[in-house]
Design a protein around this nucleic acid. Structure first.
Lengths: 224, 224
DNA sequence: GCATGTGAATAGATTCACAGCG
DNA sequence: CGCTGTGAATCTATTCACATGC
């Protein structure tokens, strides 16, 4: 029954947040125990996958019974590093940047927007929520006071790489890129991407090739 | 040299839009020929992967030379179904929905926003760009006039499933879901998802487990 | 000579099927 | 008896390495 601890497969990591969300819902409904089958249903995945994924955490279920919702919640949270708070900076406050800055559910668990940056003088000084937009040149100064863990890039593609470089220079180790551009970062930095037009093009493919297949995937791209 | 035509692997489909983007840049710079190695560099992938991916298209390169940029452009575009125009509807015009509706680059190639829908009376009638926001109850009527290929869900999680159901009823066969909820759709409908908080949680994991690994992944989830 | 195209090798993820335990 | 945990089987994807042909 001892779960193997170590080297959690990438595909598993990508699913843990999904499990976590369903577990929160179960907990909110005062459900205390859940089977792999039930959890799998809620997450739209296969039950064997759930069990194998959870076994990587060394998580204890109870044979013949299932998993304790509270225990799983805290184990997955810990594994994902959601106990600590992660400081986020958003660079680029166009439409998307604004939407991201206003996104509730950041704060939800463990994420806190501590910096908003733009290069356009007309946007500097604007308050978005409780945070004032500063010039991207101030990034190092802000990061010196409040170390930034995660940088979100929401600028036009042509300047995305230089923004990434600045974030890295400011000590950021995780980047989420919304710009439609391929970025390169040093190996110690994790990078994931969200690209709307790529998503649409993939959908276009499967629309055209009616009867398209399609298991499931998770967004982004990472390096570390 | 004949490329094998058929059953393009899912992982390949997800990379085609990436190649396409780099090819557009090359074409814009009047580059007429590109090697798998060069294209791979531009896209941040491995050269062998590029060659194998392109071989699935039955695409002709020239040994000792490389690929013709124009030919590749049109082959990939055709394969992705980007010759025809895809009509898009966005449901939910909160911060994110607005940002999406204003996103230029939709129009870029093959995508056209033809409908904006919300359930909140205070938003009905508002013009976003050239499109007026209508009540989500009008979806069937609008779809009857202009068939909608792709639906984008940008509503709160609790109502995401019913919006998906309505889209499916209105004949939509591809859905891009931004709500943090697991949706189920009939097998003929393609579904992909973009989930910001999942992305952040994955980054959190790799930040915590410093020296994290991470090849690359592409966003979403699909069914068809 | 040089870069494609691809068979074979490797790695990774999913699924099966069942032993093992509460 | 029911459900977890996991070895083994399968499937998918990546990478290697080289024969092929311009």
């Amino acid at each position: 029954m001892r779960g193997g601890l170590r080297r959690i497969p990438e595909a598993t990591v990508a699913r843990l947040p999904l499990y976590l969300r369903s577990l929160y819902e179960l907990a909110a409904a005062d459900v205390t125990t859940v089977s792999s089958e039930r959890l799998a249903d809620l997450c739209g995945v296969n039950a064997a996958k759930v069990r194998k994924d959870l076994s990587h955490l060394g998580s204890y279920g109870t044979r013949g019974v299932g998993y304790d919702v509270g225990v799983l919640l805290s184990q997955i949270s810990r594994e994902l590093g959601l106990n600590q708070d992660w400081a986020i900076a958003i660079v680029g406050l166009g439409n998307l940047g604004h939407a991201l800055a206003n996104y509730r559910g950041f704060g939800a668990r463990g994420f806190r927007v501590v910096g908003l940056f733009d290069a356009d003088p007309s946007r500097i000084g604007e308050m978005v929520g409780t945070v004032r937009v500063r010039h991207v040149d101030d990034l190092p100064a802000v990061a010196a006071v409040t170390p930034i863990a995660i940088g979100i890039i929401a600028v036009p593609a042509p300047v995305a790489q230089q923004v990434a470089d600045r974030l890295v220079d400011a000590g950021v180790v995780s980047i989420l890129n919304f710009a439609p551009a391929v970025l390169s970062v040093p190996p110690h930095v994790s990078l994931r991407k969200v690209d709307l037009s790529i998503e649409l093009q993939i959908l276009s493919f499967y629309s055209q090739h009616r009867a398209g297949p399609s298991p499931d995937t998770s967004a982004g791209e990472a390096t570390a």
